[in-house]
Design a protein around this nucleic acid. Structure first.
Lengths: 191, 191
DNA sequence: ACCTGAACACCGTTCAAGT
DNA sequence: ACCTGAACACCGTTCAAGT
């Protein structure tokens, strides 16, 4: 069954491309292999997206939108702002749990020089979503003064992304956990 | 003058390839363009390195060796261990100053799934060199207890690499500086 | 030894032709 | 409408043949 639950071809292309980019980057995404993943031929993709750049922009857009939803869902399930912040690294851990994959936006940040402009825009939106969510949590939990919340939020985002990158480079999820623990004991993340 | 100061063809290939990988990654390194950089044809490279994998391994090895030398030189110029630690982020800032390039080992960590085994080994050596240098400085400066030095060193390395990645994704070196400043005020880096 | 033209395999893309 | 084989121009890589 190539099309379960009535997902459209476009949806399945975006979903499959997301997994590929998280493992191989924009440059490592090729149309023929992607097509095979969803049961069509390479040329057929162009019936759904006019170019690789458009497909990648759609992928990156969906990625930050899904991330925004996931963070909202996290906010809804935790007891208080501090609890939310403590659980933030879980969102990055999940990628590593999925075959050592990494954040799509981190991979694409590395590929900055080779990214179409429309893709760059969506990649930055992911960081914005994360930083905004963190800043709101830091303010609500009164961890830093309001005027320092955004700066600290950016620092947490960059540090957690860096931890994921280092852990991926050794395919060692325990290293990710250790890095997060070190961030906590150093005072970057709430203990 | 394609060969100044008597540098060998191999040396010039490694140097030119390093700049390319820092901007486009292992996947974005192509033999014809690299060859043109040093004044030969693509096929000629294979007279100096048996494969792209061997070339990339030589590139990554030279990269961590140069980094180890640079850190030793930094140790020699600063007044005390604390001063050394404060200046550590400069080494990552320099890459961004060079046309928004990033750490070769960070880019290759993202490309983990597509890296030849020999290259992975050298990439990890870069992290080891950095972590060891940081751990020694943290111990010498008595910033953390000896048994926590390595963990904190890894955290600093990952966080600084993450700051570089985020700043590259926006081509914004001021963001890198702001992130480092936030790490200091949060207590991850010595103030 | 060092270099190269030419071949090979691959990739993004297009298009005429199918259903 | 959706899909496809075949082709196009291109690029990374390899190899047989040059000097």
């Amino acid at each position: 069954m190539k099309n379960p639950a009535g997902a459209s071809s476009s949806d399945r292309l975006v979903a499959a491309a997301t997994k590929i980019v998280q493992a191989h980057g924009y440059g490592g995404l090729n149309m023929r292999d992607l097509a095979q993943d969803v049961g069509m031929k390479g040329a057929s993709i162009y019936h759904h997206f006019p170019s690789k750049a458009d497909l990648a922009a759609a992928v990156a857009r969906r990625y930050w939108q899904d991330s925004a939803e996931a963070l909202q869902a996290l906010s809804a399930t935790c007891d208080n702002p501090l609890d939310c912040l403590r659980r933030y690294p879980e969102t990055f851990r999940k990628s590593l749990e999925s075959d050592n994959r990494m954040c799509l936006s981190s991979f694409m940040a590395a590929e900055y020089d080779d990214l179409p402009e429309a893709v760059k825009k969506e990649v930055q939106a992911f960081a914005d979503v994360n930083v905004d969510w963190l800043a709101q949590g830091l303010s609500a939990a009164r961890i830093v003064p309001a005027n320092e919340a955004e700066g600290r939020a950016r620092a947490i985002y960059a540090a957690v992304a860096g931890a994921q990158l280092m852990a991926r480079g050794r395919a060692d999820i325990a290293l990710f956990d250790a890095l997060i623990a070190s961030y906590r004991s150093a005072g970057l993340l709430p203990a």
